[in-house]
Structure formats: C-alpha cells, structure tokens
C-alpha cells in the first residue's frame, strides 16, 4: 500500500512540477511579449541573434531539406509505381515539405544548433553572475537577452523553412526527373495544381510557432540554470529535449487546427 501511495505521490509531484514549469514558461512568454513593445530595442543585438539563428543555419537546413526531398521522391516513386501514379511524386514531395517536413525538420535542426546554444550561453551567463550584473546595472535581462533571441527565432525559422521547402522540392525534382525519368512538365504541373498557397503559409505559421517554442525554451532553461558547469550542461540537454518534444506535440495540434 505504502509503495503504491508513494508512487502516486511521486507521479503527482512530477505532474505538478511539469505544470509549474509550463506556467513559468508561459509567464516568461508574457513578459517577453511585454518587453518586446517597450523601446528602445537594440537593433544590433537582434541582428546578431538573427545572424546566429538564421544565416548560420542555412547550410544545415539546405542539406537536410534537399536530402529529405530526395528521399521522399525515391520512396514515393516506389510506392506510386504500383498504381502507375508516378506523376504524383512531385506533389507528394511538395505537400510533404511545405506542410510538415519543412517546418518540423527546420525547427529541429535549429533547436539542435541554436536552441542548445541559447541555453548554454544564457546558462553560462547565469552561473557566472552576468545576468545578475545586468539587473544590477538596471538593465532588464529579459529585454536584453531573451527578446532578441525570441524575435530571431520567430522570424528566422519561417525564413529557413522557406529555404528548406524550396530545397526539398528541388531535391525531389532532381531525383524524380533526372534519375527516375518522370516527365518534368507533369512533375511541376502536379505541384502547382495540388499545392495551395494555404499549404505554404500554414507551414510558415507553424514554423513561426516552432521558432517561438525553441527560442523560448532554450532561453528559459538557460536563464534558470543553476549549479556551475554541470548545471549549464543539464540546462542545454533539457532545453533540446523539451523543445523537440514540445515542437512535435504542438505540431500535431497545429496541424489538426489548421488543415
């Protein structure tokens, strides 16, 4: 009996701490929203973060996007050939990339590259008292550190998603038309016929949400890091795991609501 009640107790506590954590992240989000509209914002800080999150992620995003598109084309081809519907490969790749894989893969890559770096950087600043130093100098840490990162996430992830979508479709085109001999005209026509503007734009809305999630969680974990180098390491790991999970879960609900 005791063991059962202890287990239940533990489960309840774990639930509560998860809910509390979500609540704190939401509060952080509200405070980021609040500070976002309070001038002056340092454009230079924002651009630096945008460069870090966006420009420096282009290479990985191009790579993952291209190969994902290529693999989708290859797999789709083998499936569709059974029905003699090879022409649908193009639209499958395009729909898959714009609706789902573009935003999600981009967000996961950026989480791994930039979300983790945010957690590590802010975590280091926390344990070396640099964040306290900001407060002491009457400079709000949320405004100085988190707002630029969140803005960079929200704006750069959709842009990277556009690049990823495009590269994925190009990769699919290369495999489908040049390697598998699908007629290029039909390939493109099926894309333009079956893909809607809404598919692209909803994908981008998703991407913006993911950008918000990964930057917010990265910052939150770093901002609340405790306990030296080990604490920073833990914060980084937790940030990546929590952000990735949250992105995938929210993807489901965003998809259910939007499409």
């Amino acid at each position: 009996m005791n063991a059962i009640s202890a287990a239940l107790d533990g489960l309840g506590k774990a639930m509560m701490s998860y809910v509390e954590e979500m609540g704190r992240i939401l509060l952080l989000f509200l405070s980021v929203m609040a500070w976002m509209f309070r001038p002056p914002l340092k454009a230079r800080n924002i651009f630096k973060q945008m460069e870090f999150v966006g420009v420096k992620s282009i290479f990985v995003v191009v790579l993952t996007g291209t190969f994902t598109g290529m693999v989708m084309a290859l797999q789709g081809y083998h499936g569709f050939r059974m029905f003699g519907a090879e022409a649908l490969v193009g639209s499958t790749v395009a729909l898959g990339m714009t609706r789902e894989l573009g935003p999600v893969l981009t967000a996961l890559m950026v989480t791994a590259r930039a979300g983790s770096a945010m957690a590590a950087e802010l975590g280091t600043m926390r344990v070396t008292e640099q964040i306290d130093a900001l407060s002491v100098m009457a400079a709000n840490p949320v405004k100085h550190l988190i707002v630029p990162r969140v803005l960079a996430g929200v704006f750069m992830v959709p842009l990277l998603t556009v690049v990823s979508d495009f590269c994925g479709i190009l990769g699919g085109y290369f495999v489908g038309v040049h390697l598998l001999d699908i007629n290029s005209g039909i390939f493109i026509k099926n894309i333009t016929k079956l893909v809607d503007l809404g598919d692209i734009y909803n994908g981008l809305v998703k991407a913006a949400c993911f950008g918000l999630i990964l930057s917010l969680i990265g910052c939150y974990k770093g901002f609340n890091a405790r306990g030296g180098a080990e604490g920073v390491g833990r914060a980084t790991t937790e940030a990546v795991v929590l952000a990735a999970i949250t992105i995938l879960i929210s993807d489901y609900f965003l998809t259910a609501i939007m499409f």
Partner: peptide
C-alpha cells in the same frame, strides 16, 4: 521593478568573478 531600477542607478557592484559580459 521600475522604481527598483531607479534605486539601482545609485549602485555599482563588483562580482566575485567580475561577471564581465564575455560577448
């Protein structure tokens, strides 16, 4: 927070590890 920041302008602080912004 706002009033506290006003008070803080009277202060300077030297941290244990100096806490310089390393960026």
């Amino acid at each position: 927070d706002r009033d506290l920041n006003e008070i803080r302008k009277k202060f300077g602080m030297l941290f244990q590890e100096a806490a310089l912004f390393d960026s």
